[in-house]
Simulated scan of single mutants.
Amino acid sequence: MQSSEIVANTPVALLLTTLAGISTGIGGVLVVLQSSLSYPKLGIWQGAAAGFMLSVSAFDLLPEALEDISATHAFFSSITGALFFLFLKFLIPEPDLSQVSELQETGIDKQNLKQVLLSGFLVAMGIAIHNFPEGIAVCFASLKGIRFGVPLAIAIGLHNIPEGMAVALPVYFATRSKYKAIQIAFLSGLAEPAGVVLVVFFAKYFLTETFVAYLLASVAGIMSCLSIVELVPQAWKYAGTKNGFFSITGGFLLMTLLLKTVSLLHIGIE
């Protein structure tokens, strides 16, 4: 792949990845339209978010990575990603809820809300990092022609909607701010066009298919660790073990179905 080809196709790739990326905002809008929020509902959505991420890691990121690197390299890249997530979690300060006026009125436990809000920020970070190589994937597909880029962008946009909901819900639950919930959902999706920018400026230096494969494996480690360390415990805590299990399983199956749709679209255009 020549860098001149990448530059020539940048406008189309940037448009497609931006449209796919901002569909996370649609998920945020769907969240704030809900009439009521509760801890059990939060737990169900946290479980679904965990299922989304585990499915993406197992059936999208790792298989893509294994096409260009060995299983051993993919494994150690995933471990590196997981350790990177734990390091970031250690560095992130405890969220400040001093501006949330509803706390005094509702008597909601501040410590629980801080944990929920922190998980929202971590999910947003995980989704953003995950969306970054997706932008690169759409860019690569667009180089083959718009008939390759459009179906992939549509498919990615569809599966970004539940990801946007996973990002927005904990933020909306903790702050009761519709603006903040939708904003963070949109921002997490903007990592996709950022991937195109990286391709344009750095492709000729180091952005090879092998490098992207290492990146995908690392992201799989980040998202799996985030799911297991943050989201699964919250699903069980707030929704109960039974409902938490079903929400995790349901999210996993739903995202797997969406990823299968993406795969069928690839087969149809080849």
Rank of each mutant, 00 (worst) to 15 (best):
Q99C: 06
E134G: 06
I136H: 03
N131F: 01
E94Q: 13
V116M: 09
S142P: 08
N112H: 13
V138M: 08
A141C: 04
T72Q: 11
G120P: 04
P93H: 08
G81T: 09
L122G: 04
L113M: 15
L118W: 02
L86A: 14
V138A: 07
S101C: 03
I108W: 10
T106K: 14
Q115N: 14
D96P: 03
H130S: 01
L117V: 01
E94L: 11
L113P: 03
C139V: 01
A82P: 10
I136R: 03
E102G: 00
Q111P: 00
A124W: 04
N112C: 06
E102C: 09
I92V: 15
G126C: 01
A141N: 04
I92C: 08
G81K: 09
L86C: 12
Q111T: 12
Q99Y: 08
F75G: 09
I69H: 02
F132R: 03
Q104Y: 06
G107D: 11
Q115L: 10
Q99W: 06
F85V: 11
G145W: 09
G120A: 06
E134D: 11
E102Y: 12
P133W: 01
T80Y: 04
I92M: 15
A74T: 09
K114G: 07
I146M: 10
L143N: 10
F132K: 05
G107R: 10
I92N: 02
A74D: 06
G81H: 11
I69M: 08
I92K: 07
Q115P: 02
I79L: 15
D68T: 10
L88N: 08
H73N: 14
A141H: 04
M125D: 02
F85A: 08
F132D: 02
H73E: 15
A128V: 07
Q111W: 05
A137N: 11
N112D: 15
T80W: 08
I127L: 03
L117T: 00
Q104K: 14
L118Y: 00
L103D: 05
E102W: 11
I146H: 00
I146E: 05
F76I: 11
F76C: 05
L86V: 11
S98H: 03
A137R: 05
A82K: 10
I129N: 02
S70V: 13
D96F: 10
A82D: 05
F76R: 12
E105G: 05
G135M: 07
A137Q: 07
A124D: 00
A74H: 06
A71P: 02
A128S: 14
